[in-house]
Write a protein that binds this DNA or RNA. Structure first.
Lengths: 199, 199
DNA sequence: CTGGTTACAAATATCAAGTTCTGTAACTTG
DNA sequence: CAAGTTACAGAACTTGATATTTGTAACCAG
């Protein structure tokens, strides 16, 4: 019996996200997703080539929402670049803390994906690096940042703040001192970026 | 039949390290260690309270050797603090790369220990932080570092270089660009430390 | 021919059995 | 009694039979 509901990619993604949220990434099967939609599991394979592809699509959608939120902060010319950099880095951390709190299962799914070397993870990092580069380029233009290559500098800042955004350190984000720690690293980096001249 | 060999803690530790090296941390049992020494496994328990304690003792010995090597670099007053800081951070990375290359099984054992929240890991970090603090204190005294609290600054530097010493990032230490990456972060941090005045 | 179905092979996961390992205790010997 | 032994209970690991899941193919309705 066909034509119960139309069943397109979006509906499948929403259902998958729900199943993932409920069952967690290890126990969520595509049979579960199909059952939730009232179709056979082969039907979802008409829309997604593999379980891996389905997982990636869900995670990508989820990460893109984060990216868009952060983009607003990164592009806000009203805030001076130094302050904006600090705010952006704190927002990255706060966003991930919120994700863990609200959807630990989805967060775990992202971890599995990252470990599997999916492009979803590297693409997301590239997006964030782009935003960081924009902030630093702004700072070089009018905020007193002394930097030749904004992209290389962005990479260095990203590497120096790995503890505050890389999944491997998610456990430390619960520490009460984590925001102070980030502030301290920010201060050190901003000092370096804003230094009038190098010896 | 007693009194074949004396059997003290050191002999057991050496045998354990050998077994660990050969079998890896998951497959190495205390029965294996005892067999290698030609005694019953209960004999080992006369010297170490538990398998966990035995593993910790082996790892602690191993890490202490690293600590001592790095201490030489940290304490070398002949090298100016800025350069010494850079050299020390590179030595930390190089040391871990060498460990992975030469004794991946022992390295894995350390990872298991760290995950189990053993004090061995936190003690080692404390040791390294102490060395870093000493370098920065030297820099504050005579190397042109502008820092109020050497210990807090050391912590910030340690956090900012997490990618280059935390086990979670061991996979990235194979990347060809890793040394350049560390250099770039070092430069940024040193710029911050040496900045003549903050805005 | 789009959007679904059922049916099936291969890869994976689960579970209950037997086995090995950890840790303790009671025992032996110089 | 120091330095070991054997013996044993419970926890943790194999192992292999069974069940689920993934992914594909051949088939059907509008």
């Amino acid at each position: 019996m066909p034509a119960r509901t139309p069943l397109d990619a979006d509906i499948i993604l929403a259902a998958t996200e729900e199943i993932l949220r409920r069952h967690g990434p290890d126990k969520a099967t595509v049979v579960d997703v199909a059952r939730a939609l009232g179709v056979s599991h082969a039907a979802v394979y008409k829309h997604f080539a593999s379980k891996q592809a389905l997982r990636e699509a869900v995670t990508r959608r989820w990460l893109d929402r984060t990216r868009d939120t952060l983009a607003v902060i990164a592009a806000d010319r009203a805030v001076p670049p130094a302050q904006r950099l600090r705010a952006w880095l704190h927002a990255v951390l706060a966003g991930k803390q919120a994700k863990i709190r609200e959807a630990p299962e989805l967060f775990a799914a992202y971890g599995i994906l990252a470990a599997a070397h999916s492009t979803v993870a590297t693409d997301h990092v590239a997006d964030l690096l782009g935003q960081l580069t924009a902030i630093i380029a702004d700072g070089a233009a009018d905020g007193g940042f002394r930097t030749g290559d904004a992209e290389a500098t962005a990479r260095a800042v990203f590497h120096a703040t790995v503890r505050f955004h890389h999944l491997a350190h998610a456990g430390e984000w619960q520490n009460p001192g984590i925001d102070t720690d980030l502030d301290d690293v920010c201060s050190l980096l901003l000092e370096g970026l804003q230094a009038p001249a190098s010896p």
